[in-house]
């Protein structure tokens, strides 16, 4: 009992601390700029969440650290880029419906294509090295080389410009606070994905089995569930989310380039180390922390932006080595 009270107290303290930390940048930033930065930070955090949640859940269930996740992210962006290219009329059309339609088609195409790529990756490569972390990292790193080079073969080695669908471009001016439209879209997408993931994991039988598998794979197998099918499915979902993240991020940053996965994979690693491997909620919290600090620090001390997240990661590793939301293991 005492322990649970302590834990609850601890939780409240953490939330209070988080709020204080969140407001801390106000010392150096004008409130209006602060709001703009906060929205930017949340939007970036939501996009990172899309990448990190896949890494996290694949690790949690399958005990596989997927270094190829960044390459899948880039593939998602490029598939979306191709859809935009062929339906450019709809992208630049002054019609909300057409803009939404092309955005939707691009999302579906990117997610389905990359999910299939994920299935191939899992079946052909990753499956051979279950249970051996060293070989997993090596082999998924090898897969990254191949996937990134294939992008260069199919789409060429140069950066390409991504077009924002017209409706999403520009910003709203709400009481002098500048709110970019696309950032709001990103936040909505991230929140929806989180809600759907939570719903599946908590309310469906399949989700319950996945959560059980995160705790004890062998037991789930011994209960008669085909864990390998589950692995493939989860890998495909993780790949699909990475693709969604890649597409959304490419519109956010207005470009696609073959190596784009590397940077975001790093962000994803930092996020899952902060949040705790295996936890979807941990990924969300970690991603928001990374997104917000990155934006605040980039505004206040631009040169330190790259390092601050690594610093946070190191601090978390020191005080809570398993991350904020460690999974059951």
């Amino acid at each position: 009992m005492a322990e649970s009270i302590l834990r609850r107290w601890n939780q409240e303290l953490t939330i209070a601390g988080a709020i204080v930390l969140l407001l801390l940048p106000l010392i150096g930033i004008q409130p209006k700029t602060y709001l703009t930065l906060t929205i930017a930070g949340i939007a970036m955090g939501m996009l990172l969440f899309l990448v990190a949640s896949g890494v996290s859940i694949i690790f949690g269930l399958m005990d596989v650290l997927n270094f190829a996740h960044g390459a899948l992210f880039a593939w998602g962006a490029y598939v979306g880029f191709t859809v935009f290219k062929y339906l450019m009329k709809w992208v630049v059309a002054d019609s909300v419906l057409q803009n939404l339609a092309v955005f939707f088609i691009a999302i579906v195409a990117a997610m389905v294509a990359v999910a299939l790529l994920g299935v191939v990756l899992e079946r052909v490569i990753v499956r051979r090295v279950y249970g051996n972390h060293l070989f997993q990292i090596l082999i998924t790193f090898g897969a990254t080389i191949v996937l990134v080079e294939l992008i260069r073969v199919f789409w060429g080695p140069n950066d390409e410009t991504m077009t924002v669908p017209l409706t999403f471009a520009g910003n709203w001016d709400i009481m002098d606070v500048i709110v970019y439209r696309y950032r709001v879209i990103c936040i909505v997408i991230g929140a929806m994905v989180y809600a759907v993931l939570q719903l599946i994991l908590k309310k469906t039988k399949l989700g319950t089995i996945v959560r059980a598998g995160v705790e004890d794979r062998d037991m789930v197998q011994a209960m008669g569930h085909n864990i390998y099918l589950l692995f493939t499915g989860v890998f495909a979902v993780g790949a699909g989310l990475a693709a969604l993240g890649g597409l959304a991020m490419s519109i956010f940053s207005l470009q696609v380039y073959p190596d784009m996965g590397g940077t975001y994979l790093l962000f994803a690693f930092i996020v899952v180390i902060i949040g705790g491997l295996g936890s979807v909620t941990g990924s969300l919290v970690g991603a928001l922390i990374v997104g917000l600090t990155y934006n605040y620090v980039a505004y206040l001390v631009p040169w330190a932006a790259a390092g601050v997240n690594i610093l946070i990661m190191i601090i978390i590793l020191l005080i809570r080595p398993t991350g904020l939301f460690a999974a059951g293991k």
Binding site: F135, I139, G142, A143, I145, E149, L150, R152
Partner: peptide, 16 residues
């Protein structure tokens, strides 16, 4: 021109 692609495939094959 994309010799790295070949090396990547080689890399995976050797690991397997």
């Amino acid at each position: 021109e994309r010799w790295l692609l070949l090396f990547g495939i080689l890399f995976i094959l050797v690991v397997i």
